[in-house]
Design a protein around this nucleic acid. Structure first.
Lengths: 227, 227
DNA sequence: CGAATGCTTCGATTATGATCGAAGTATGAA
DNA sequence: TTCATACTTCGATCATAATCGAAGCATTCG
């Protein structure tokens, strides 16, 4: 039965370890140069170059040339969601890297999932918003309540802009480390941006881990109390 | 950056054309024998056997032995969602099979997506339920309304059982042919089951296509009028 | 019980694709 | 302008894994 879309090509693009490593690095949400990606994947620049060309041809990546630098990024939200879906499945099968190093707890605590906060902190944030009846859950579906809208505005997030965009405001994203949902969507992105802009949290070098400062942890706990 | 779940293995399992074909066949929701899967993939039984062992070891498939027959099926909802996510991306990239044969329009009209109705009919059904205010949409999130609950019960679907299950009742599933959402979740599954049980629709042999009878088309149009 | 059928395992073959050294092109800085 | 750096392209190498014929094991049927 050779019907419908051809998933083999997409699978084979993701199925090479070097390419998978580069895609994972790009899940951190930052655009990276070809050289940086080669380093992340542990291969030479020439090999990386040919891999990146394939990922770009397959539509998973876009590139932007800045002088002699080529910046690559995931091409759209949908790629991030697809990769997270695969990550969630891989994690549920216990397929993780063979060395749970020092960064593993940090990833589990707080990390970037493409453009929003994930990990323990991501899940706690959603739980708190739900408990405070600012987000309503029906099954696996999220909706911002009136109280939630007020809260969003009070945080300085432009709700009208979120509403205007075609992206969903609240979306579940199954967290691979917590096995429960964290908050994705444009609100999830806006909140992570807020934490970074306020200096409460920083991105770690060469990692998707997010590091909260002491004052940031305090602010986070006040913003999203556990009931 | 070799952090977190290892997506390369999952990708490589999906990335072989024969294995992709078998997974696609199993998206029809029926358990199939190793021999049937070999035929679908156009390979010998011995090759299929080794591929199926890999898919099973990777957790994508489960098998049930019935005498000398081995029935294989996707192991869980999450595999179906993951594959549909990849299908949606592949379709959005225009990566379809090179022969849009007679079955292609049939797939686009109505087909099984793992356990629920997809295609034009799947999308029309969701649109109708939304227009009738039986399902409420917020962004990409779906929730059954009170009116929707009444409707579900009136159709003879056991709403209490749906509510009790841990699965979401209404879930969006991005339709690869329509590029809009159709209805997944336990309600989506219950509705497809209803159509089949009532004899309004049948599964096609060796295809994911769903064929509605004349009276089934009539019933469908009455149940889900276009506003 | 013997024959037929469904499936697994073994081993040899071969096509594929990742890899990197070498060379070339493009950009930036001194 | 020259040199350094970022990246692409070419071509040779080689490891890997899909493939199928053959053989074997398990189940079913007459």
């Amino acid at each position: 039965m050779k019907e419908g879309p051809d998933i083999a090509l997409i699978g084979s693009l993701i199925g090479d370890p070097a390419r998978a490593n580069m895609l994972t690095a790009l899940m951190g949400g930052r655009a990276l140069t070809a050289t940086e990606l080669a380093t992340h994947a542990g291969i030479t620049l020439q090999t990386a170059s040919s891999h990146l060309a394939k990922l770009e041809a397959g539509g998973l990546l876009t590139q932007r040339k800045q002088g002699r630098h080529r910046y690559y990024a995931l091409s759209e939200d949908e790629v991030g969601l697809m990769l997270e879906s695969i990550m969630g499945f891989a994690a549920s099968r216990g397929l993780t890297r063979n060395r749970p190093g020092p960064k593993d707890p940090a990833l589990r605590k707080a990390r970037v999932c493409y453009n929003h906060l994930a990990g323990d902190y991501g899940v706690r944030m959603l739980d708190s918003l739900v408990a405070a009846r600012q987000i309503e859950v029906t099954g696996n579906e999220l909706a911002l309540t009136d109280a939630g809208r007020d809260r969003v505005e009070a945080l300085g997030i432009d709700y009208a802009a979120l509403k205007k965009s075609r992206r969903p405001i609240c979306r579940t994203c199954l967290d691979w480390s917590e096995r429960r949902s964290h908050l994705a969507g444009s609100l999830g992105e806006a909140l992570l941006t807020l934490f970074i802009d306020k200096g409460w949290a920083k991105r770690e070098q060469n990692s998707r881990a997010i590091r909260f400062t002491d004052s940031g942890e305090k602010a986070f706990s006040e913003l999203f109390p556990q009931y």
